[in-house]
Amino acid sequence: MRLSSPLLLLLGLFLLSPVVAEEKQLEEQEEEQKEPDNDHIMLDSLEQGVTSTVDATARWFDRFFGDSRAFEDEYSTQGRLSVGPEWSEFDGTKVRSSFRARVNLPHAERRFSAFIGRVDIDDFVAGEDTQRRSSVLRNVSGDSEWLVGLGFDPHQGEQSRFSVNAGIRGGLRADLYTEGRYLFQYRMSDRTQVRTRSVGFWRNSDGFGFAQRLDYEQTAGDDWLGRFTIEGTRAERISGIRWHSSASVYHLYAEERAIATEIWYAGESGNVVPDRDMGIRGIHRQSWRRDWFYIESWIGMHWPKEEPGQTRKGSWLVGIEFEMWYGQN
């Protein structure tokens, strides 16, 4: 009986299939036994960049405590609303409140965003308003007011980023402002990194200015972070250079519960009293009921001075803040 060509072809494939499968299995075993490619390992390590332990830990504490990188992640809508009564032996009782909302505009590859909020314009334009608890460490002459603006992020790299913002402050006063910010972070090791932030700005009422900030961060495990910060601002509205330095230690001691200790020193070089304030405080922060609602309390002591003949003496600080975040789902 003669077999047709198609039948002969099928019969041949059937007989050869075990041989082919065995050869393929041997090739896979040889690949598994090969030593890893060192070039690929180096490239993978380089690609990770600042997504190392220190940066991941720093970002977590920044987000948990509402620090300056809290609005740099990949959410389309971000914002927060806070109310915080505080008492100081020096200033008495005050109730601070703030509102911020930033929306990344669609169809623009996440490069454009809109902003509206009630913040301290002096600190916001200099890039300091997002610093944790600006209600305590704020510009003594500042005050909150409404701000509306647009942002453009032409470069959003993991290691560096550049952004431009412009808007209107003061409601009907229509005081225009614009600024450019450049953030760069360099990983020195898996536990240490340095970040710099440079801000050039212009305001219709106050002219040109420049602010520079340097952060040194080091971790000890995933639940400890130490940070030293120094920053200075020079502008036509400032007498000399307004500066601020601080040293902080953060510790996550339970799920969604953390404590921090902070020492700060602040002043303005051209002022009648250059070193206007210094202090220390302990902070406790935790989420309550929901992962977007936080309660933060602090107690400490500072040594302010406003007039040359004034005696510098210790004054107690006590405060609590209720804060609601949205846009983090």
Results as ranks from 00 to 15, higher is better:
Met1Gly: 15
Ser5Cys: 04
Leu7Gly: 05
Leu10Trp: 09
Leu11Arg: 14
Phe14Glu: 03
Leu15Gly: 11
Leu16Phe: 13
Leu16Ser: 05
Val20Pro: 11
Val20Leu: 15
Ala21Thr: 08
Glu23Gln: 03
Glu28Arg: 15
Glu28Cys: 11
Glu30Asn: 14
Glu31Leu: 11
Glu32Arg: 13
Asp44Cys: 07
Thr51Ala: 07
Thr51Phe: 11
Thr53Ala: 11
Val54Trp: 01
Val54Phe: 03
Thr57His: 00
Ala58Gln: 05
Trp60Tyr: 07
Asp62Pro: 04
Asp62Phe: 06
Arg63Ala: 03
Asp67Asn: 09
Asp73Asn: 06
Glu74His: 14
Val83Cys: 06
Gly84Asn: 00
Gly84Arg: 01
Trp87Ser: 13
Ser88Glu: 06
Gly92Ser: 05
Thr93Ala: 14
Thr93Gly: 12
Arg96Cys: 08
Phe99Leu: 01
Arg100Glu: 15
Phe112His: 07
Arg118Leu: 07
Val119Asp: 00
Ile121Trp: 00
Val125Gly: 01
Gly127Ala: 07
Thr130Pro: 02
Arg132Lys: 12
Val140Asn: 08
Asp143Thr: 12
Ser144Val: 12
Val148Leu: 15
Leu150Gly: 12
Ser160Asp: 10
Ser160Ala: 14
Ser160Thr: 08
Val164Tyr: 12
Asn165Tyr: 12
Ala166His: 13
Gly167Asn: 11
Gly171Glu: 04
Arg173Glu: 09
Ala174Val: 08
Asp175Ser: 05
Thr192Val: 04
Val194Tyr: 03
Arg195Phe: 01
Arg197Val: 00
Phe201Ile: 09
Trp202Gly: 04
Trp202Ala: 07
Asp206Cys: 11
Phe208Asn: 10
Phe208Asp: 13
Ala211Thr: 10
Leu214Trp: 04
Thr219Ile: 07
Asp222Val: 00
Trp224His: 06
Gly226Glu: 09
Gly232Thr: 09
Gly232Cys: 10
Gly232Val: 10
Ala235Thr: 13
Gly240Leu: 13
Tyr253Val: 07
Ile259Leu: 09
Ile259Thr: 06
Ala260Asn: 03
Ala260Met: 03
Gly270Cys: 11
Asp275Asn: 15
Asp275Leu: 14
Asp275Lys: 10
Arg276Trp: 10
Met278Pro: 00
Gly279Gln: 02
Ile280Met: 08
Ile283Ser: 01
Ser287Ala: 09
Trp288Leu: 15
Arg289His: 11
Arg289Asp: 12
Arg290Leu: 06
Arg290Ile: 03
Trp292Met: 06
Tyr294Gln: 12
Ser297Tyr: 09
Trp298Glu: 04
Trp298Val: 02
Gly300Cys: 08
Met301Val: 12
Met301Gln: 13
Pro304Asn: 08
Glu307Trp: 05
Gln328Ser: 15
